[in-house]
């Protein structure tokens, strides 16, 4: 199909899948579909099952935590070229944040439930995907820690007691 060929090309071009075997890329392409989200729309909500991830092609998305009575707290934004969603790869396969499109967002959506099944059967595929997602997770963790450090904060807030 023309559309699948297009998605294959997109996957091929994405750094996340660089150097991956063709058969595995074909498998992933088989789980892929195009997705579009209007500005302000939620791509997903926290707490639900993490059954997909997205390769952002255009636009940006905010990962938010909702605190009742407050404005949504944005912990991170992602944009073109970034991977949205890693909850699908680690048990308990749950969505950890709300994801809201900040502008019109176009993405390749990948059905992870389908992929997880294939990873159980083909451990090489599983290894390849873990190898590629672990750095994404580690990067986010490191960034979050730096944000917690609050390096631009006023020294008065951090005087040793």
């Amino acid at each position: 199909m023309v559309q699948v060929e297009g998605l294959e090309r997109l996957l091929l071009e994405h750094p996340l899948f660089e150097g991956m075997a063709d058969e595995h890329r074909d498998l992933i392409a088989g789980c892929a579909a195009n997705a579009v989200f209007e500005a302000g729309r939620y791509v997903y909500r926290q707490g639900g099952p993490a059954d997909r991830f997205y390769l952002i092609r255009h636009g940006s998305v905010a990962l938010e935590v909702h605190v009742p009575g407050r404005e949504p707290f944005i912990v991170e934004t992602l944009r073109e070229g970034d991977v949205l969603g890693w909850g699908w790869i680690l048990p308990p396969f749950r969505l950890n944040f709300d994801a809201r499109a900040l502008q019109l967002m176009r993405a390749v959506s990948i059905d992870a439930a389908c992929l997880r099944g294939k990873m159980d059967e083909d451990h090489e595929l599983g290894y390849q995907l873990y190898r590629r997602f672990m750095p994404v997770i580690a990067d986010r963790l490191a960034a979050s820690r730096l944000q917690i450090v609050d390096m631009y904060g006023h020294p008065d807030d951090y005087v040793r007691t």
């Binding site: 940006s60 944005i74 912990v75 991170e76 631009y152």
Partner: peptide, 14 residues
């Protein structure tokens, strides 16, 4: 920015 609430449409992150 390191932290923002919903009104901010720019980047959040390091």
């Amino acid at each position: 920015v390191d932290r923002a609430t919903g009104e901010w449409s720019g980047n959040v992150g390091v």
